[in-house]
């Protein structure tokens, strides 16, 4: 078994309105920053032991499917690194 950190990034699907990101963008612009767009995402870092990286990724992916993401509005990706 190897120690891994699986990083699950959950973001809104393209085209789904993100009022919090819009509000954040407006606040940045009010501070004088010039930007074209801003998107936000949630990142979960899951420490786990697995026989190999593929299995670590599979388990983290299942976590995303069942809880961390809502498939109606979210896409997600998983990246695994040894820790």
């Amino acid at each position: 078994m190897t120690d891994y950190t699986a990083t699950v990034t959950v973001r809104l699907k393209r085209g789904v309105l993100d009022p919090e990101a819009e509000t954040t963008q407006q606040a940045l612009e009010r501070l004088g920053f010039d930007l074209d767009d801003l998107r936000s995402a949630d990142r979960f870092e899951v420490d786990l032991d697995a026989p190999d990286a593929d299995e670590a990724a599979e388990r983290a992916g299942e976590m995303a499917e069942r809880l961390l993401a809502n498939p109606t509005i979210h896409d997600y990706d998983v990246a695994v690194a040894e820790r």
Binding site: E20, T72, I73
Partner: peptide, 11 residues
């Protein structure tokens, strides 16, 4: 039920 309820457009 289908769909999701998320942040109001007004934030």
């Amino acid at each position: 039920t289908p769909g999701a309820f998320t942040t109001n457009a007004s934030a």
